[in-house]
Design a protein around this nucleic acid. Structure first.
Length: 472
RNA sequence: GCAGCUGUAGCUCAGUUGGUUAGAGCGCCGGAUUGUGGAUCCGGAGGUCGGUGGUUCGAGACCACCCAGCUGUACCA
């Protein structure tokens, strides 16, 4: 170790990114397959778009040379044009629809599963790369399209084993507008009010009341300025969210029509799916600029724990709404659209302890002194549909067993010179052995007894391995 | 962005009012055991004490600034 000119790089993940291992990948695949199956059964067709888009096609965050990566990950292409990693699947959809408008059936119903990236500060359970599972209907302003998506979301959550354990909360932005008009909130404060209402689930009524009034101090002591509404205004704005009632509030013709539409959408879903899936909830706001009518979120009714085992306010596992202006950015034509997005990673962490996914058991064939024979046995086991591998390292026998143990293998297959001479193989039940080892004190006795292993005819390899696996 | 807290081995952390050569547990590697996982025992590798400057005879510790991480909050498609 002589003079090292450059210091070693530190092995570390970029902030907000994660590695994912076998178990999580298996769980995500299983979940995504269930979601896909439901979407496809509804006739939604899959679409894939690239990770990069031209930045101006994504909208909103146009990079300038000083701050090219505000909110999104951006880079400059060879020809000087800005590219960005997509931050959702909806903006690429709008681009796709605008680009292929004449060839698409209207309504165009598609789903898309993919990673999205956001260049922002990560938080607990919040990353800069995550998977979304979107379904959208473009080209229909009918409540039928809204209702269909709500049904499909309900069926999807049912298919994931969450039947009866969630509620889809729906609201309409025009109802909120009506309420704010009734409270005589001037236009400059509406944004602040909506943002405050959006935080009901996290901050509670008292926190939101502070944000609507003078302001709120967070637990670090930092102060957030409020909307400075009067007591009366605050009461009016909070009446619907807290008492779930519009009694005594005149929300105007537009607001009333939007409210009636919400009720009719709920009734459609109730008629096909039974009551209780859809709940009118005025606390649902979902952002500011994007949605134009219906907004909704799916919330889990059961408590969710974080990595430390603490119960957390979980928020929504899926959300969406109606956005009627997205395609017009490209074409100038209003194209009504409605859609939702399932946050697959969030859903997975919520599902973790409730619906574990079991991996197929693994068989490891140890390679004592004849690699070719080990490979042949592993191949034979694979041919029988088992997950099997031959040891490809170069360590001694004891270490090979340690390896099998660490892999979580269920069975080890051993064929050394002794076994071969007898035309047999030794099968070791690693799971059973791990259990037995708890009561063994001395290594000598453990080695001598060789628990949980049997010798079988080489020709019966597959059948005997199957028999051993069947015990668990 | 704002605020609070925290930075010592791969990980989790200890390190007395500032005092010699910076420690522990876990993990890793080797051995006890040329063919048997766990536990145990023995040995080993692994550190610019986040960085820079300052105070001091002396700084991992004290001060200033910077950087990074975590948490909350703001913004958020």
């Amino acid at each position: 170790m002589s003079d090292r000119k450059t210091p070693r790089p530190k092995a570390r993940l970029p902030r907000g990114f994660r590695d994912r291992g076998a178990e999580e990948i298996a769980r995500e695949r299983a979940v995504v397959e269930k979601i896909r199956a439901v979407y496809e059964s509804y006739g939604f067709e899959p679409l894939e778009t690239p990770a990069f888009e031209y930045t101006d096609a994504l909208g909103k965050f146009l990079p300038d040379t000083d701050r090219p990566n505000e909110g999104v990950f951006s880079l400059k292409d060879d020809d000087g044009q800005w590219l960005s990693l997509r931050y959702d699947l909806t903006a690429p959809l709008a681009r796709y629809v605008a680009e292929n408008f004449q060839n698409l059936p209207k309504p165009f119903r598609r789903y898309q599963v993919g990673q999205v990236w956001r260049n922002e500060k990560p938080g607990p359970g919040r990353y800069r790369e995550f998977t979304q599972c979107d379904a959208d209907t473009v080209g229909s302003n009918s409540p039928a399209a809204d209702a269909e998506l709500l049904m499909m979301l309900a069926d999807t959550l049912d298919a994931l084993g969450l039947k009866g354990q969630y509620a889809i909360l729906i609201n309409n932005r025009r109802v909120l507008d009506g309420i704010m008009d009734a409270a005589k909130i001037d236009a400059s404060r509406k944004g602040t009010v909506l943002r405050a209402l959006d935080k009901l689930d996290r901050l509670g009524v008292d926190g939101v009341r502070q944000l609507l009034g003078a302001g709120r101090k967070d637990e670090s002591g930092d102060f957030t300025k409020g909307a400075e509404l009067s007591e009366n205004q605050i009461e009016t704005v909070l009446t619907f969210p807290t008492r779930k009632s519009l009694a005594g509030i005149e929300i105007g013709a537009g607001g009333q029509a939007a409210y009636d539409e919400l009720v009719s959408i709920r009734n459609i879903v109730d008629s096909t799916h039974g009551e209780g899936h859809i709940v009118l909830d005025p606390g649902v706001v979902r952002g500011l600029d994007y949605y134009t009518g219906l907004v909704f979120e799916a919330q889990l009714k059961f408590p969710v724990k974080n990595e430390k085992g603490e119960e957390v306010v979980f928020g929504s596992v899926a959300g969406g709404g109606r956005y009627d202006d997205l395609v017009s950015r490209f074409t100038g034509q209003q194209v009504p659209a409605v859609g939702f997005s399932i946050g697959v990673s969030r859903l997975l962490s919520a599902l973790q302890e409730r619906a574990p996914v079991a991996l197929d058991p693994l068989v490891v064939v140890l390679a004592l002194d004849d690699t070719a024979r080990s490979f042949a046995m592993a191949r034979e086991l694979r041919g029988a549909g088992l997950r099997a591998e031959a040891y490809v390292g170069n360590r001694k026998f004891g270490d090979q067993l340690k390896y099998a143990d660490k892999r979580g293998a269920a069975v080890a297959v051993i064929e050394g010179a002794d076994e071969r001479a007898r035309g047999e193989v030794t099968l070791k039940d690693l799971a059973l052995g791990a259990e037995l080892s708890k009561s063994v004190e001395s290594r000598a006795a453990w080695v001598k007894d060789r628990p949980a292993q049997i010798s079988v005819k080489r020709g019966d390899l597959v059948a005997e391995v199957r028999k051993m696996l069947a015990r668990h």
